[in-house]
């Protein structure tokens, strides 16, 4: 998928959780949201983007995405 769309989505999520005063909770919030609502191919692509420097991602989004567990080749692949 067009990576900039995924970057925008991740950043939008991070802007909500930035209000969380506890930084670890904020990271968990972004991470949990992406894990629960994003299709594996989207998670894989944003994780690869973050691993390559994560251009355009907010700091919080980059930190959360970098903690995404590896996407196993799901049956949907």
């Amino acid at each position: 998928m067009e990576i900039q769309r995924l970057v925008k989505m991740a950043n939008d999520i991070s802007r909500f959780f930035e209000a969380e005063p506890d930084h670890d909770e904020a990271v968990k919030g972004v991470l949990g949201h992406i894990s629960r609502f994003w299709d594996p191919r989207m998670r894989r692509e944003i994780a690869e983007h973050a691993a390559a420097g994560g251009s355009g991602l907010t700091d919080l989004a980059r930190e959360a995405v970098s903690r995404l567990p590896p996407v196993t080749e799901a049956r949907t692949a």
Binding site: M1, E2, D39, R41, A74, T76
Partner: peptide, 19 residues
């Protein structure tokens, strides 16, 4: 399948990238 699927806008994006 235990993983979430694509939402409508994601489906449309995925259509344009061929997946």
């Amino acid at each position: 399948e235990p993983e979430p699927g694509l939402r409508i806008p994601n489906m449309l994006d995925a259509a344009l990238d061929g997946s």
